[in-house]
Write a protein that binds this DNA or RNA. Structure first.
Lengths: 209, 209
DNA sequence: ACCAATTTCAAACAACTGTTTTAAATGTAT
DNA sequence: ATACATTTAAAACAGTTGTTTGAAATTGGT
């Protein structure tokens, strides 16, 4: 019990701090202090900080990726030739919402971690993404191409990442953007408002040309 | 001569390293080694690392922001009530290309630095952005609203930042994304191809609903 | 209750961080 | 050439980083 508990206490604390400050700006001492655990525990249970980062990401990927792939495959099989972009986007909702089982902010945290993984990447994270990302990416490309056959595979690839960029940038810059938004209009913006703004924007982008 | 030269050698080296590794992951010793200058020179000429970061950003902002604002105002005055989204996007081209006067990669570097400024923000950078960014943001909002009066000011605000997110994410993740793209299709993607993909996507997003 | 394996802990590790100090070198006027 | 201010340079600063050590505490199996 104590072994699992310590490991998970570290993962929980690390995840929050990684999302808030980034991987490199989070020290092991910040993590172990928040987790109420000895500094040496990280190296004992995970080996190194690098492996801790991957363990944090793994927890989300092993939960999210299979669910998303199942959801997409089910929708593709169900709709067959009538599969639309709306079906594509809808396939994300359930898997994303299911992350809330971990904790309330899990969905946002996941997106932020993915974003940080992309931009803070220093080699080992890049390799991690390309391996754990490969078959999912193929399925995503195939799905969109089913809904929009007139697009090239390359165009779909880039548009998917443009969309990811909008989401990830909005998440990681959340505090800064909300502050600026608050200074310009005096009405504050909730996460729900943001999603409401985001969805039609992403849909229109993928539908371009 | 020697004083200006040292200052600029530091700025040039810092800019490249900041864009490549981020602000916090770039040490003063990395910068001064690349610049072939003593470590103490940074604190002598700039006061602190924070002030060096702002000096690097300043070099771009003082060059880019006035040009963009003039370009937008000229276009607004010229087209009057016939100002379109195409006019809006076109106003960026000249100011962005003029950055190439600094060096060949200046435009991409500028976008990356802006992106890092948003997500690595720890307080002082956020304040820097809101002050040096305020009147430009207002002008951008007004311009888009002239072209698309049916949108609310808040919607335009978020869509502008969604677009910035796509650009910035694509820039900062450039290497990683190109690697993935190369693994999936075997045709490599140039920056020109990327812009060609980006423009219709951004236009469609702003035109949504 | 015992032994052995697992886990925790305080302390120290070498390497690195931004910054400061002090002295030497350089430049610039008179 | 003298006197002054500006700029460079080597060295050390206190603080933090990830990681390792070795002994203490805890655990689980018999």
């Amino acid at each position: 019990m104590s072994q699992v508990s310590t490991k998970q206490k570290i993962l929980n604390a690390a995840e929050i701090l990684f999302a808030k400050h980034g991987f490199d700006n989070t020290s092991l001492r910040m993590i172990t202090t928040d987790a109420d655990v000895n500094v040496a525990a990280v190296n004992y249970h995970f080996g190194s900080k690098k492996e801790l980062i991957q363990a944090v990401l793994d927890r989300y990927f092993t939960l999210f990726v299979p669910k998303l792939m199942l959801s997409l495959k089910a929708s593709l099989a169900d709709k067959e030739d009538a599969f639309t972009l709306t079906d594509f986007y809808s396939a994300f909702i359930q898997p994303l919402l299911s992350l809330s089982g971990i904790h309330s902010k899990a969905t946002a945290t996941f997106m932020i971690l993915v974003g940080r993984g992309y931009s803070e990447t220093q080699g080992h994270l890049r390799r991690y993404f390309t391996t754990h990302y490969g078959e999912l990416l193929s399925l995503l490309l195939d799905s969109v191409l089913k809904a929009k056959p007139e697009l090239t595979r390359a165009t779909v690839f880039w548009r998917l990442h443009f969309a990811l960029g909008s989401v990830v940038f909005t998440m990681t810059s959340n505090t800064a953007l909300r502050e600026i938004a608050l200074a310009d209009f005096d009405k504050s913006t909730s996460i729900e408002d943001l999603i409401y703004e985001l969805v039609p924007y992403l849909a229109a982008g993928m539908n371009a040309e």
